[in-house]
């Protein structure tokens, strides 16, 4: 009975949408950044899977279907970029400067921190591309000899942290310029951070979208040439 229900793709889809809905409700009630809908949904699902001893593969029968929509959702970012095309064109130089500097800072800081913590090669290779969008990150990780699923984990961790902490980092570093806010969110925390940027305003969202694609390309080039 349990297997019958949980191995149906409907199970994964149902609990994903339901927990995300709960996440939004809790977020609206508490208005606290730490009660992030994405984080709440993930933790609730992980708890359900562990408590009821449901294998990830059963959940993923449905999860993979929702995951499939990441393609169209990412392509859709072009819509915001297009609507804000004047702004993007006007600030192209700043966007390029911010993504190049940010991507370099990301790679260098990860390599140095990995040495500091004494991580082995395959772990640090898995971490290097963690600031960029998933498909590029997986390609980089594989070519550097990293572990694919660990890259995805670090990537999501960074994205969710960026999603939650973006408003805090903006205050902490006193980033008043909205272009700078958008570039920093997109460069540091890819699409997951960008979903927060879109909530903060379509201009920031559009800048963040273009920044995440640039930083993905730049990170790929740097890791192919240098590492």
């Amino acid at each position: 009975m349990k297997e019958l229900i949980t191995s149906s793709p409907l199970f994964g889809i149902a609990i994903t949408i339901l927990t995300y809905y709960l996440g939004i409700k809790i977020n609206q009630k508490t208005k606290k950044a730490i009660f992030n809908p994405l984080l709440i949904a993930e933790l609730l699902i992980i708890a359900i899977l562990i408590v009821f001893k449901i294998p990830f593969s059963a959940y993923n029968n449905g999860g993979a279907i929702i995951n499939l929509f990441l393609g169209p959702v990412t392509a859709m970012l072009a819509y915001s970029i297009y609507r804000m095309r004047k702004l993007v064109k006007e600030h192209m130089l700043s966007i390029i400067a911010g993504t190049v500097a940010g991507s370099l800072a990301s790679i260098v800081s990860i390599i140095l921190l990995s040495r500091l913590f004494g991580l082995d090669e395959s772990l640090s290779a898995s971490l290097v591309p963690k600031s960029v969008t998933a498909p590029i990150a997986i390609a980089i990780s594989t070519s550097l000899g990293g572990i694919r699923s660990l890259t995805v984990t670090a990537l999501l961790l960074t994205g969710v942290a960026g999603n939650i902490l973006a408003p805090f980092m903006i205050r902490l570093f006193r980033v008043r310029n909205r272009i700078a806010q958008g570039v920093a969110i997109g460069t540091a925390s890819h699409v997951v951070g960008t979903s927060k940027a879109l909530e903060m305003g379509e201009d920031i969202g559009a800048i963040s979208s273009i920044a995440l694609s640039f930083s993905g390309i730049i990170t790929a080039i740097i890791s192919m040439l240098v590492l």
């Binding site: 994964g12 994903t16 949408i17 927990t19 995300y20 809908p37 994405l38 949904a41 993930e42 699902i45 992980i46 899977l49 990830f56 959940y59 993923n60 449905g62 999860g63 993979a64 929702i66 995951n67 929509f69 990441l70 959702v73 998933a134 995805v152 999501l156 994205g159 969710v160 999603n163 699409v191 997951v192 979903s195």
Partner: peptide, 9 residues
């Protein structure tokens, strides 16, 4: 953000 949930799990 909904579409990132399964990847995170």
């Amino acid at each position: 953000a909904l579409f990132f949930v399964p990847a995170g799990v």
